[in-house]
């Protein structure tokens, strides 16, 4: 599903690469953690998948497509295959929970009949079926992240990338979010999560890819946060 083929990324005006010579392959339906200290290249890794960034050398393949070579007008199609969630939720404050989730379908031109069907089903999946008419500010952090997850998966993406999704949440809430991500993974979505929450990684016992200064230093099928 996702292949990094000798990928190097150097930000403008910087000498040390954010990623250097990264080779990673993630299969369809996998659940993988991306760990490492801040600045190790986790976010860069995720942003290369969604073509927010372009590799300076090497190839990034998503669903068989070389995303670095996508034309400007093809990028939206790629993003429809990849759901994204972030540490800061990124919800629209003026819209209700329902509208926030529906927005993701509206802007890619889905018919309203489909929206009326999918949004409640997705809110149900994330456990917010009773809170559709609330505004984000009326929700707890964990609930807000659930809305963001609902928005990311309402279009049934092939891949879900999560950049520190539990970074702003307390441990108990984080467990709930992880359970939800696990549920989404079991529906067949490939999940790639960048985190430095050791507890979560240790509990989940999934594949762990560790980055250090832009290089993959560890890639274990069922790993823990620290070196096992």
């Amino acid at each position: 599903m996702i292949t990094f083929d000798n990928v190097t990324k150097i930000y403008p005006n910087q000498t040390t690469p954010a990623l250097s010579g990264v080779d990673v392959h993630i299969d369809k339906g996998e659940f993988a953690f991306l760990v490492g200290v801040s600045g190790s290249g986790k976010s860069t890794f995720l942003r290369l998948i969604t073509r927010e960034l372009r590799a300076d050398s090497g190839r990034v393949l998503v669903d068989g497509q070389d995303v670095g070579r996508l034309g400007q007008f093809r990028v939206p199609r790629l993003r429809r295959k990849v759901g994204m969630i972030f540490q800061d939720f990124r919800l629209l404050p003026g819209k209700t929970v329902y509208e926030n989730v529906a927005f993701a379908l509206q802007v890619i031109g889905r018919p309203s009949a489909e929206i009326r069907e999918r949004v409640p089903a997705t809110l149900d999946l994330v456990g917010l079926s009773t809170k559709g008419d609330r505004l984000p500010e009326e929700l707890s952090g964990g609930e807000q992240q659930r809305v963001a997850i609902a928005r990311a998966v309402v279009n049934d993406p092939l891949v879900l990338t999560a950049d520190e999704p539990t970074g702003n949440l307390d441990p108990a809430t984080s467990v709930g979010i992880m359970k939800l991500l696990d549920r989404i993974h079991r529906r067949g979505t490939t999940v790639l999560m960048a985190t430095h929450d050791a507890t979560i990684v240790d509990q989940m016992r999934r594949r762990v890819i560790e980055l250090d200064a832009g290089s993959v230093v560890r890639d274990q099928a069922t790993g823990a946060y620290g070196t096992a």
Binding site: T50, Q72, F73, P76, R77, L78, R79, R80, M84, R90, L92, P93, F103, A104, V107, I108, G109, R151, N155
Partner: peptide
């Protein structure tokens, strides 16, 4: 800009935005 950011990450086309 927030809406635009979200439209971009959810794959709205440039024309649409």
């Amino acid at each position: 800009r927030r809406e635009i950011g979200i439209m971009r990450l959810t794959g709205a086309s440039t024309t649409y935005i």
